[in-house]
Design a protein around this nucleic acid. Structure first.
Lengths: 134, 134
DNA sequence: TTCGTTGCAAACATTTTGCAGTTTC
DNA sequence: GAAACTGCAAAATGTTTGCAACGAA
């Protein structure tokens, strides 16, 4: 996909993704921008987000509860995904293990570009709700 | 979900998932079993696979091209996903890094149950196709 | 003016669900 | 025989797409 013009809406969609750490879905972006852009359409959001992804401007962090989630932060970092509420949280403190890529390269006859790590469990918010109910 | 009876079809579905290293989708399981069980329905496959997942008998390895993929091997291991053909391949040679869970536990106030690592790149098969075309 | 971009709505693909009938224990 | 399970088909959900109108260079 060749994106030539940079429309106001396209800019707003990209800004919205980059301005949050919530790893938004297309629906989140749509709902967030709808008040300011009442004639925004969901198709446009999908089209642009796919374009950003193809261009490497944003990353997919996989599907949570059936919705694909994205990250405007393209620097390598890990994620935590809450098995209860589905929140996706950045983990910045685990250094990227380049050696792992090398190991896999040597044993798998695949070209390894990069790896992603996802931690799973219960987030702080959900833990608190649990405690409040006891 | 409480599964009490263990029907023939349920058994066949579980067997099918465990008997392959292809990390199958629901559709794959359905198509594989359909010849032997002509009255099998896709709904049953989905229902059972979700049940297995809830019970921890199988693991989801995320969505590839819009289809959720599963793994009957629940021992901790990593995966390689081909960015070209979508194949999911087991990586058994990268030891599970328990220390990483500990680090994240300490910095995030989340309960960490486990982590998954996905390597991305081009698989051997796709590399060969590429070379053949040169 | 020319193309890229958008809104809209229809089309699609995957997954879920309600219900009546069937199987398992 | 009761409870669990299934087939079927409809519905729900998330995403893509065709096309005419719109907007940016």
């Amino acid at each position: 996909m060749a994106r030539k013009n940079f429309s106001k809406k396209r800019e707003a969609i990209y800004e919205a993704i980059c301005s949050t750490k919530s790893h938004p879905s297309a629906e989140w972006v749509y709902n967030t921008l709808k008040p300011e852009y009442p004639d925004l359409s969901l198709g446009t959001v999908y089209r642009n987000m796919n374009g950003f992804k193809d261009d490497g401007m944003i990353l997919s962090v996989g599907s949570v509860n059936g919705q694909e989630r994205f990250d405007g932060n393209t620097k390598p970092h890990s994620h935590f995904i809450c098995n209860r509420c589905g929140d996706v949280i950045d983990i910045e403190n685990v250094p990227y293990n380049m050696q792992a890529d090398e190991v896999v390269r040597n044993v798998s006859n695949c070209d390894i570009d990069y790896h992603l790590t996802f931690f799973y469990g219960i987030c702080g918010k959900c833990k608190n709700i649990e405690e409040d109910n006891n």
